[in-house]
Design a protein around this nucleic acid. Structure first.
Length: 208
DNA sequence: GGGACGATCGAT
DNA sequence: TCGATCGTCCCC
């Protein structure tokens, strides 16, 4: 385990609690191109067999969803619309296929590398980009995966270990946490309205 | 083997 | 509001 990373028991909370506790923590990825990191500012919980919006609804186990049944603290990465990747933190006890989608980050380290990976028309050499431009790097699940260099290769990775791990960030109080329905799951019938999306209130880097 | 669809993004 | 773009999943 990496010295800095959050310990195993951090991931052993009930999924809705973990989804809130992930807010403010620092996601880090070390690659040959450089290190990137960002504070987690928005998450969504997907809770196993009973959640119609979850890939593991009904206990569906496929090559894609298999890692959701593994120990908490692993990376569940999937591809969507043939072109974007999304990063989830596996949660729940082994056998309970639950996960938390990381929806937005506040960039911290490696911003020039993020700019290159995202192909943004920003000067990577500059060093005081306006927030309204900077937020385009990581204010959505597909965007942050691209900015952080995350794809299928990280599927199943244990987030306690370098090169991809989560470390203690800033403490977020209960009053700063807002919640509401999850994004992009209108097909999920009653689950559509579950308030399982969490974000840091008024944070400029959230997705919507 | 085939077809429908998607936990998104970015341009219009 | 709509098209891109293709892996995944389920059905035949």
């Amino acid at each position: 385990m990496r010295v800095n990373s959050l310990p195993t028991d951090f991931y052993e909370l009930p999924t809705l609690d973990l989804a809130k506790n992930l807010l403010g923590q620092l996601l880090v990825h070390e690659t040959p191109e450089g290190l990137t990191s960002g504070y987690i500012v928005e998450t969504e919980a997907y809770i196993g067999p009973r959640d119609k919006a979850a890939h593991s609804y009904g206990g569906r186990m496929t090559p894609r969803t298999q890692v959701m049944f593994d120990h908490p603290g692993r990376a569940y990465v999937y591809q969507i619309y043939g072109m974007h990747y999304c990063l989830n933190v596996v949660s729940g006890s082994p056998g309970a296929p639950e996960a938390i989608l990381i929806r937005a980050l506040q960039p911290v380290d490696g911003i020039p590398l993020m700019i290159r990976r995202r192909n943004l028309a920003l000067d990577p050499q500059a060093n005081n980009w306006p927030v309204r431009r900077l937020r385009l790097l990581t204010n959505g699940p597909g965007k942050l995966a691209q900015a952080m260099g995350i794809d299928k290769q990280q599927y199943g990775w244990n987030l306690l270990d370098s090169p991809l791990f989560i470390q203690q960030g800033q403490r977020i109080s209960a009053e700063q946490i807002a919640s509401g329905p999850r994004i992009g799951i209108d097909y999920a019938e009653e689950a559509r309205d579950y308030p399982w999306r969490f974000w840091i209130r008024d944070h400029p880097f959230i997705s919507r």
